[in-house]
């Protein structure tokens, strides 16, 4: 909890950047909303959404960019892996993974305030967004949102640590960006994807970051199934992360970094 508060404060030093990010997210939200409106006007009720659902989805996905760190990065350790300082972190008694997770939750909380609320408010003012009335939906959405951040962390943590083995990690970074961006639902809602592509996309971890929390908000998905899906991926990625951390530690101890 203290570490999360520290992560929150650490990120509050980038306030100008966060506000600029919110501005950019809002502009893109407006542009994408128009495209989706054109699509849904031609095909009302497509994929079980009406126009208001589609526009809400669009602005929610923009709001998720900051907290879910859709464009990658956000972790202090990736810089420390690059400089080799991670060796010091790995031999500390505290768990590097849990420490990073707490820090990342603080970061997400801060970016939720600065980068998620503004696009949503502007979107609501310009287009009118769907607002759930049932308080239970809000509670489920909150849980789904937090799980989304954890899945996102689990994935980015693996990417960051991969630099321990891969010397030039820019390739991995850009591959991760492509997968996250396309298969989270950022480009278009995943339920528009045709046939098998849609089935596969819905099962991959990235859908837990944008598509699933948005559907929980819109009430388009069985809540328990959705939260279960996210939890399963969160646990799987965190376990994998723990294994990778352990072998990274062994590598540092044996090879001296």
């Amino acid at each position: 909890m203290r570490i999360a508060a520290y992560g929150f404060r650490r990120h509050s030093t980038y306030r100008a950047a966060a506000i600029a990010g919110a501005f950019t997210n809002t502009v893109f939200g407006i542009l994408r909303a128009y495209v989706l409106i054109a699509l849904w006007e031609a095909r009302p009720g497509l994929a079980g959404y009406d126009i208001a659902d589609a526009v809400t989805f669009c602005f929610l996905s923009q709001a998720f960019i900051g907290p879910m760190q859709v464009f990658g990065g956000g972790l202090e350790i990736s810089e420390r892996v690059r400089t080799g300082d991670v060796a010091i972190d790995l031999i500390r008694p505290a768990s590097l993974q849990m420490w990073s997770l707490a820090d990342d939750l603080g970061r997400a909380a801060y970016l939720f305030l600065l980068r998620s609320l503004p696009p949503t408010i502007v979107g609501a003012a310009l287009f009118g967004l769907v607002v759930p009335i049932d308080p239970a939906t809000w509670a489920f959405f909150l849980a789904s949102f937090v799980l989304g951040v954890i899945v996102s962390f689990g994935w980015r943590y693996l990417i960051a640590l991969s630099a321990c083995w891969i010397i030039d990690d820019r390739g991995v970074q850009s591959l991760s960006l492509v997968m996250t961006f396309f298969f989270s639902g950022m480009v278009l809602p995943l339920n528009l994807f045709p046939g098998r592509l849609g089935t596969v996309a819905a099962a991959l971890p990235w859908s837990a970051m944008v598509q699933v929390p948005a559907d929980v908000y819109l009430g388009k998905r069985d809540v328990l199934e959705a939260l279960g899906f996210q939890s399963a991926w969160a646990v799987a990625l965190l376990l994998l992360g723990a294994l990778v951390t352990r072998s990274a530690r062994r590598k540092v101890v044996v090879q001296g970094g």
Partner: peptide
């Protein structure tokens, strides 16, 4: 070379989005 290929794919995502849209409609705007 990796980065050239990467940027080819990343920008290709926009085309993929257009393709997905035209799976559902015959014309846009």
């Amino acid at each position: 070379i990796m980065m050239v290929i990467g940027s080819f794919i990343v920008s290709g995502l926009d085309v993929a989005a257009i393709w997905v849209i035209f799976e559902h409609v015959g014309s846009l705007g």
